[in-house]
Design a protein around this nucleic acid. Sequence first.
DNA 1: CTGTTAGCGCATTCAC
DNA 2: GTGAATGCGCTAACAG
Lengths: 332, 332
Amino acid sequence: MTARKLVPTISQVAAEANVARSSVSRAFTKPYMLSDDTVRRIKEAAERLGYAPNHTARALSTGRHGNIALVVPDVANPFFPPMIRAAQAEAYASDFCVFLGNTDEDPKQEDRLLDRFAGQVEGLVLASSRMSDERIRAHARKRPLVLINRDVEGIPRVLIDSASGVKEAVRHLADLKHRKIVYVSGPAASWSNKQRRTAVREAAAKAGLQVEIVAASVPTFAVGRAVAAPIVATGATAVIAFDDLIAQGIMAGLADLKIAVPDSVSVIGCDDVLGAATYPPLTTVSNRSVEAGKAALSLLMEMLRSQAIRDVRYVLETHLVIRNSTGRAKTR
Amino acid sequence: MTARKLVPTISQVAAEANVARSSVSRAFTKPYMLSDDTVRRIKEAAERLGYAPNHTARALSTGRHGNIALVVPDVANPFFPPMIRAAQAEAYASDFCVFLGNTDEDPKQEDRLLDRFAGQVEGLVLASSRMSDERIRAHARKRPLVLINRDVEGIPRVLIDSASGVKEAVRHLADLKHRKIVYVSGPAASWSNKQRRTAVREAAAKAGLQVEIVAASVPTFAVGRAVAAPIVATGATAVIAFDDLIAQGIMAGLADLKIAVPDSVSVIGCDDVLGAATYPPLTTVSNRSVEAGKAALSLLMEMLRSQAIRDVRYVLETHLVIRNSTGRAKTR
DNA sequence: CTGTTAGCGCATTCAC
DNA sequence: GTGAATGCGCTAACAG
């Protein structure tokens, strides 16, 4: 059985409705130029044939494909899906389709992907890009580009300021009489990671807390679980993790070691992607990823409309969400 | 500051290299047809101008855009991201880009989306489609289409057989001496839901268990939480939920009502998307979504290569993962 | 209001 | 091997 694809074209609709091809085109793009009656006849004919405008052909003639690309490091990281969803909804509202790119946290893959998208998208949104500033700039020169969680001057960007929430987290730990804490860092190329690490350091210095850094290359449950032992080895009584996934892994690793949370060690996550689903419910820094996705798309759509690029730096504040994984420092 | 886009075309390269446009085209697609020298000259000229073939134009003339679309009901439902990720990886391996569509569980939106993708994709993957068989068939007539978790005869499909795991779940509850259980149903248009409901009924009848159905229209945490009370009202001692999200919500709702899990009520989820993150860790039915995504893409790629459509029905078995949300029936 | 004409950038016949 | 036409499906002037 051979796959026939009888995708109807504008010509067939024109024939079916006894009008010129251009009229069919107009019926779909500028119906106000036609009489109500012809529009109706054309729409009916189109319906009968199952016709839908071919966007590729349209793009070739107009130069506007109505597509954008959204590129993320890892679709399966729970931080991104809500953002993706929000961005999509925003795109659809302007009748744009979205390509989704997954880079597996690899800047080379990201670069390749962007070239691959070139020529079929009008604009790009890069979330948590791992590329160098230089490469980002190079891509931004070719077509409208908006960044999420990456602060490159001159390129429109939406930043979730986790620093504010992280600082609250440190103060929270200080209030609970902790004296020594650990920050478990995330991907080295991550802007968010730098921001959070700096915020921890600054707030800790101000509160007179001692800080140690433990590295977690990739933000996953497994990696978090693996760093539980090194964390305990530091002798710290509290830990702030780069994100909730790592924090959740740490809690599992701590449980493996028979160390109680929060009685022996307090754990704080970041991004609030797990809700109250962990046990104990995780104290974490709130997440604005939905707003970020929405804002990024709005910016991009505006750039496409105005054909101009403004140096926008849109910052979303965060705060600490206190649940039950933090408590008074254990007196040792 | 205005964004200029000086994208060079094949004609400019032809002029630069003193050859015909067709030769430039060949240099990029069929270099073996040209002398090594001309290929080199053309490539150099292209490099100098920063030329890259226009994907859109190429697609219009060849009918092959190297794009596929993946359509899901809800990107933010944790069941899908791993599947999306797997499908993407598989697509990239064949140098295909993927459009992601989100239907918000709405068949109309799904229909619209597919028309919107028409003309810019070579093939489609529909995951957990909520459309009617008829509409699915209509779209499948137009272009290669593969279904995930939807069983329509004649259309290639990948099915995650949760029935096997669900039946194990019922037997597990019977072994724990439960006599009356509740099945919390998911979206009415969901094939998986029908499959699971039927499996529960059959296995329960065989094991001599009484079953009540409680409806949860949309699979979300909030909905699950809301149905905790109706579940308790049935007097059942165990519940099997359509998916983990609902199960998690039910556990939260049960906690609100001061009902202990699993001491008073046992809870079983489906899809294993939460890992051991819930408290208590959720007993659930395993998930094969990654394999499903990969398999669907393989099928689609094969269809695109062979231009033929086979009536494939690829089934992935599941089984019960026993954790700590299930226990002996409470003697009342 | 509607039909006619001419490309958009490229791949693909045909000739040479 | 290479160049000159033709058309993919659609939009955009230009007429009438």
